[in-house]
Every structure is written in structure tokens, then in C-alpha cells.
């Protein structure tokens, strides 16, 4: 089995963006129902280069450049999925998904239910979230929890190249609309990715590092930061256990609950603003479960400040959790300093 945590041991390495592209290429070669649609996905190769070269390989009919029409992109995915295709749409920045909200929330998510379970909308909408690029408040949002709150949608958030490819292939083969949330800072990160097609089941949380002192539940780029923090903490003799939900909706909560029962302490980390964020859901799942009786400390949320992402580099970095914040908060929790 390949190492799924991104460490390579001399094995084949790809970046997160390359892993996504390889998955897209492989499934497009295998399944002619799959096509890509979005702004600048063709000639330009996607704003972050994920679909680079695919237009040359599969033609402009299957890698479709659109006008600036996010509602139209979402609708194109819904209508084609409803009639038997497997569209993979791209919303260039997650911020712009606001323009497609009606189509995603009121149409894609509800069509199956409203039609009495007699229709399917097997579409994927890929979109990069996150700050750290200096792009300020309208190009840095992490809005994943908006979609978690809408029954009928699935929400997937890969944290490394291996998961990115495997989860994308699962999402495309899933019968439901999937919001596939990527992260701009992860696109160039490298990790082991097998060449063959493989899938990672949706709704399977994964323990990405074992430890006995504290359970850290982290998403997307925060998994990477938590792993870095874990190395630093290990030098002090603190071993944190990191769980990556990978699919936020529907959530596989068992590995989280089991981990908390083992460590007795929990901290949730995400980049999105804290208030109303996904961390609240994770904490609720923990305290509603039988892990409650095992808790030895308050459950902590480490998340983005409740502000728009600022432009200034220093302010931006202070807005979302960094490695040092994770180290500091984890240490406090483990040492009972709360």
C-alpha cells in the first residue's frame, strides 16, 4: 500500500494539482460521459493549472470554456447530470460560488428529494478555497460549511495529493452532487500518488497520525499544518493524533469519536471563520457521543478569525491558524493550561 500521508519513501510523486489532473484524464479516457466545464479551464488550463493540457487531449467539446457565468456553469452541470452525463464543473475561486448558490442549493441539492427520489444529479463542482495568496477578501473564502448545511449535497475537502486523486474519482462516480473543495496553497504540494486509477470512498475519515495525548481534527491545508505542528510537539514528548474527515458531509464520525475516547482531549482546526464553522459540528458530534464521558478538558476550536481575509501579508497570516498557533494551543490543552 502506498503511504497515504504524503510522505514518499522514493515512490512516485505528484503535486496536488497534478494528481487531480491525472484523475480527470484517466476517468475522461474511460468514461465519455465525463466532461469539464468552467471559466478558463480549456486554453488557459484553469486558473491554477489543474486542467492544463486536457483540452488538447480531449477536445473543446469535453473541456468547455465558459463565459463569466457561475450560475450558468452550475446549471450546465445540473442539467447534464440529470440527463445522464457526469459533469465536472469548476468555479474559479470558491468566493464566486456565491453567484451559483441558487442553482446549487435550491436545484442540485433538492431535485432528487423533490422528485420523490426518482432522479439523480451526479455532478462534481471543483473549487479552490482558502487564503494565503494575498488575494484579499473576495478571493480567499472558505465557505465549505455553507454546503454542509444543505441536505442533498456532499462536501469533500482533500488535504494531500493522494486523497485528492482518489476522492475526486469517487466524487465523479458518486450519484449525488458533490462540492469538491480544494485549497490554493495545496496545489503545489507533493506527495505519493499511484499511477493507476484508485478511489477513496467518500465519508471515510482517516487517522493520519497516531498519538495518545490529544485528538486534532483538521481539514484541508490545516491537516498539513497540524502534521508540522505534531513534529514540533513530538520533540517535547507530546504526541497528537490527527484525524482528517476528508468528506465533511456526510461525516464519518466514528474515527473521531474513537480517537477522543482514547486521548480524552480534542481540538478542531479549520481555516474558515470560527463562528458557524464546521468545527462547531465536530464538537457537537463529540459531546453528543459516548466520548463525552472520556473528556478530560474543554473541547477547543482553532479557526479563522471572524473577519474578512485582509490583504496585508501579516494581517492575513494572523487571520487563520498557523503551525505555531497549533503548537501553542495543543500544548496548553495537553498541559491542562486552559
Amino acid at each position: 500500500m502506498p503511504d497515504q500521508n504524503g510522505s514518499t519513501n522514493g515512490a512516485r510523486e505528484l503535486t496536488y494539482a497534478e494528481a487531480l489532473r491525472e484523475g480527470l484524464r484517466q476517468i475522461m479516457a474511460q468514461d465519455e460521459r465525463v466532461f469539464i466545464i468552467g471559466e478558463d479551464v480549456g486554453v488557459y488550463g484553469g486558473a491554477f493549472g489543474v486542467s492544463a493540457g486536457l483540452r488538447d487531449e480531449f477536445g473543446a467539446e469535453r473541456v468547455i470554456d465558459t463565459p463569466i457565468s457561475e450560475a450558468g456553469i452550475a446549471g450546465a452541470c445540473i442539467g447534464s447530470a440529470l440527463t445522464g452525463m457526469r459533469p465536472v464543473g469548476e468555479i474559479q475561486f470558491m468566493d464566486f460560488i456565491t453567484i451559483s448558490m441558487e442553482q446549487l442549493v435550491l436545484q442540485a441539492a433538492k431535485i432528487r428529494f423533490m422528485f420523490g427520489g426518482k432522479a439523480t444529479v451526479p455532478m462534481v463542482l471543483r473549487t479552490p478555497a482558502g487564503s494565503g495568496t494575498g488575494a484579499a477578501a473576495q478571493h480567499s473564502e472558505s465557505l465549505e460549511n455553507w454546503f454542509v448545511h444543505v441536505p442533498g449535497l456532499k462536501v469533500v475537502m482533500p488535504s494531500n495529493p493522494y486523497d485528492a486523486k482518489g476522492l475526486l474519482l469517487s466524487a465523479i462516480q458518486d450519484e449525488n452532487p458533490v462540492i469538491f473543495v480544494e485549497h490554493k496553497l495545496l496545489y503545489r504540494t507533493k506527495g505519493h500518488v499511484p499511477e493507476e486509477m484508485y478511489t477513496i470512498p467518500l465519508s471515510e475519515s482517516k487517522v493520519v497520525r497516531e498519538g495518545q495525548h490529544l485528538t486534532v481534527i483538521a481539514t484541508s491545508v490545516m491537516v498539513r499544518r497540524a502534521l508540522e505542528a505534531a513534529d514540533i510537539l513530538a520533540q517535547e514528548g507530546i504526541e497528537i493524533e490527527i484525524v482528517d474527515p476528508r468528506t465533511l458531509m456526510p461525516l464519518d464520525e466514528k474515527p473521531i469519536v474513537e480517537s477522543v475516547k482514547k486521548t480524552g482531549k480534542a481540538m478542531v482546526i479549520h481555516e474558515a471563520v470560527k463562528t458557524g464553522g464546521y468545527g462547531g459540528e465536530i464538537v457537537s458530534r463529540i459531546v453528543e457521543s459516548d466520548a463525552f464521558g472520556y473528556l478530560e478538558a474543554p473541547v477547543r476550536r482553532l479557526a479563522g478569525l471572524d473577519i474578512p481575509i485582509p490583504y496585508n501579508r501579516t494581517l492575513e497570516a494572523h487571520t487563520v491558524p498557523q503551525v505555531q498557533n497549533i503548537v501553542d494551543e495543543a500544548r496548553k490543552l495537553v498541559k491542562g493550561d486552559y
Binding site: E61, I64, A76, S80, M85, Q103
Partner: peptide, 12 residues
């Protein structure tokens, strides 16, 4: 917007 997707299915 959904009609665009149905049209694409037919075209593809």
C-alpha cells in the same frame, strides 16, 4: 441555467 446542461447532453 439547467436548460444549458440539457442542451449540452444532447450536443455531446
Amino acid at each position: 441555467p439547467i436548460s444549458v446542461g440539457v442542451g449540452l447532453t444532447i450536443k455531446l
